[in-house]
């Protein structure tokens, strides 16, 4: 008997990595947006802080406007649920923390500057925010992470630091 949860940690880390990915210099904003959470099914249930995004593309384009982020997986648990069909589904509950660049520049390089301001290339990260991540994903992820296997993605910021410049 093999461990049905063996690949989930790497899977979750791959998802978080795609949320933090910086655009490459040769990528157009549209191309870059497509690299954000490509594992989402079309359509899928994407709920961010209680707001639903029926369109994968709208979610990706909105996420692409964020400043640089850094996610860390803290803990997770998962159940493999039989569906009565050949493929079962994973119900995954994870705790994540995230911080945001507060230097006044988003990941596409946009700023609000009206006068020249020199900035260090590195992000100036906010304090950590706590995130509850709830996923429903197809068992297919055990074959490859490069597939549209997430049918439900619920990202809820549950803890916000008082001292953060970045706001919800």
């Amino acid at each position: 008997m093999s461990d049905p949860t063996a690949k989930l940690e790497n899977f979750l880390k791959a998802l978080l990595k795609s949320l933090d990915l910086q655009p490459l210099s040769e990528q157009s904003p549209e191309m870059y947006a497509n690299t954000i959470l490509p594992q989402l099914q079309t359509p899928s249930r994407v709920i961010i802080n209680g707001t639903p995004y029926g369109s994968k593309q709208v979610f990706q384009q909105t996420w692409a406007t964020l400043p640089s982020t850094q996610h860390q997986l803290l803990s997770y648990d998962a159940h493999l649920i039989p569906t009565g069909q050949p493929q079962s589904i994973y119900s995954i509950l994870a705790r994540v923390r995230v911080r945001f660049d507060e230097s006044g520049r988003n990941r596409l390089g946009d700023t609000a500057d009206l006068v020249p301001v020199s900035r260090p290339p590195r992000p100036l990260y906010s304090p950590w925010f706590g995130v509850s991540l709830k996923l429903i994903a197809d068992e297919q992820l055990n074959q490859t992470f490069e597939c549209e296997c997430i049918s439900s993605f619920n990202y809820r910021i549950t803890e916000k630091p008082e001292s953060s410049v970045f706001t919800l």
């Binding site: 209680g50 707001t51 639903p52 400043p67 988003n106 700023t111 910021i157 410049v165 970045f166």
Partner: peptide, 12 residues
Amino acid sequence: LLSFPFPCASSF
């Protein structure tokens, strides 16, 4: 630039 671009609602 300093705000989470996703509106926050307590329930969905």
